[in-house]
Design a protein around this nucleic acid. Structure first.
Length: 317
DNA sequence: ATGGTTTTTACTGCGTC
DNA sequence: GACGCGGTAAAAACCAT
């Protein structure tokens, strides 16, 4: 087990393995060392979990080893500005045995708490971080994305802060961009529009900041695959499972031909869903798909026409 | 700044319920 | 007449140079 911990620590870059998922046969397996698992972003199958044990390490054979291995305490988290590491002073005026204290001890504790808080958030950078992380936290809840995204977003923000990229940009803007990046990185993309809707910053700034941050931090993300939007849109539209499957098929076939490059992924996904609906005789109004994908009927029309032509199929009717 | 590409906006006609 | 669909032209947005 210690071996795997070392491996984990040494895996500095967040590389993605290209490997086929045994369940759904796609190459969408994502390896994320920070989360310690390899998971297929298509079907959600978790392939391996690195046994990261945050509990105490018991096996020690001499004193030195003991010092190195023994780990006790709460797990680290990136989403608190001090990683959850600093001392916190309980707000209750009780001693360790749960008994109440004398009045002068009360006063002493009160002063301690004040200073503890001042030390905790001592410089501008810390306060900056504290605010940004609370903002990320808020947006994550509003967006309803899973927890790992929050951690990733926090890491990205930290890196941006360390690289001194915030200067001249708003904290909110950078925080939102970090979140947007994190969503894509975690394989559960939200469109720029969706992220914008929970942010206090307008879309243009988020887009600009995102590009800048990604560039400066050397984060190179593949363009979002339209298929990643299909399940979410479909469940929002409440369409048949067959339509969803067919939509994914359409996307796969057409992207293979490079039909998607340069086109907006959301519009592409919306069109595929509409096209799939047509082919399955379950007509979904263009208006509806366009709305859930936050695009327009015109875009849906243009895309689905191209898609149907590309796969050489026309609706039976 | 510029030009090429894509998306959006706005307006149109057509068929159906 | 309201609605869904299709086409189009022009404006706006986007991106690379």
């Amino acid at each position: 087990m210690t071996q795997s911990i070392i491996d984990h620590a040494e895996t500095e870059s967040r590389e993605r393995d290209v490997e086929l998922c045994p369940d759904c046969e796609t190459d969408t397996i994502v390896h994320d060392p920070d989360r310690g698992e390899r998971v297929c972003s298509e079907c959600g199958l978790v392939l391996t979990e690195d046994p990261i044990d945050y509990g105490p390490e018991w096996r020690a054979f001499n004193a030195k080893e003991h010092d190195e291995l023994s780990r006790v305490g709460a797990p680290l988290t990136q989403s608190m500005h001090d990683r959850g590491l600093t001392t916190t002073i309980d707000w209750r005026n009780r001693d360790a045995n749960g008994h109440s204290m004398s009045a002068d001890k009360h006063g002493q504790l009160h002063r301690l708490r004040i200073w503890q808080e001042r030390i905790r958030t001592k410089n501008a950078g810390e306060r900056n971080l504290k605010y940004a992380l609370s903002e990320i936290d808020r947006m994550v809840s509003a967006l309803g994305v899973p927890r790992p995204v929050k951690e990733t977003a926090s890491v990205i923000y930290r890196r941006a802060l360390e690289a001194d990229l915030i200067r001249g940009r708003s904290i909110e803007g950078v925080a939102t961009s970090a979140l947007y990046t994190a969503c894509r990185k975690e394989g559960i993309p939200r469109s720029l529009e969706e992220v914008t809707s929970v942010s206090r910053v307008d879309q243009r700034e988020i887009g600009r900041t995102y590009r800048y941050i990604a560039d400066e931090l050397g984060i190179n993300l593949e363009p979002t695959n339209p298929r990643q939007f299909v399940p979410r849109f479909c469940s929002e539209l409440d369409v048949d499972k067959d339509v969803e499957t067919l939509a994914v098929e359409i996307i796969d076939q057409t992207t293979e031909q490079g039909l998607h490059s340069g086109k907006s992924p959301t519009g592409f996904a919306a069109a595929a869903i509409y096209a799939a609906g047509l082919l399955q005789d379950e007509t979904i109004p263009q208006r509806a798909v366009a709305e859930t994908a936050q695009t327009t009927v015109v875009t849906v029309r243009n895309r689905y026409r191209e898609q149907l032509e590309a796969i050489d199929r026309t609706p039976a009717t």
